[in-house]
């Protein structure tokens, strides 16, 4: 069952003017979203979704806009609500999970992002595109 997990800021949290949809500029309480087909347990209060950070000194010139590090974020889940479809057949998601968060800053250590894996799935299963990429980059 695929789950859509949405992290949203609780009422009266700081810096509300900084939380915007980039494409529209509209203000939002949404902090992050996860998509989960793993069958793992849903988040519980106390969970902190990770945040991803770009450290200038660690940038890979081949991927100049990519994030370089990650850590536990300053947002902590305080409530969890779940919603399931009336008829769970033919739906994109078997469950929607809304995790309400409060700002509770911590000094979490930065961890470097792992190596980037590249496979035929990086090209949507297009084997020719994958082979072409390998020839271009290794040739």
């Amino acid at each position: 069952m695929r789950k859509w997990i949405i992290f949203r800021a609780d009422k009266r949290q700081p810096n509300w003017k900084e939380r915007k949809f980039q494409h529209s500029g509209s203000l939002t309480n949404i902090l992050a979203e996860h998509f989960d087909s793993s069958g793992r347990e849903i988040p519980e209060p106390g969970y902190r979704p990770p945040e991803f950070i770009r450290v200038e000194d660690a940038i890979d010139p081949q991927f100049p806009a990519a994030k370089t590090h990650y850590r536990k974020s300053d947002w902590e889940v305080v409530r969890v609500e779940t919603y399931t479809p009336d008829i769970p057949v033919g739906t994109d998601f078997g469950m929607i999970v809304i995790c309400t968060c409060q700002y509770n800053p911590i000094d979490a250590p930065l961890k470097p992002m792992p190596e980037r894996q590249i496979s035929v799935d990086s090209f949507g299963g297009d084997a020719l595109a994958y082979q072409g990429y390998l020839v271009t980059t290794q040739g």
Partner: peptide, 28 residues
């Protein structure tokens, strides 16, 4: 971390292999 040609490839990997997708980022 897996590289992808576009965001949809990330969604497809998540669903195909039963993974949990935490973030999708532009790379440049």
């Amino acid at each position: 971390r897996h590289a992808a040609a576009d965001k949809d490839c990330c969604d497809e990997m998540e669903a195909k292999y039963g993974w949990k997708l935490l973030d999708v980022e532009e790379t440049g």
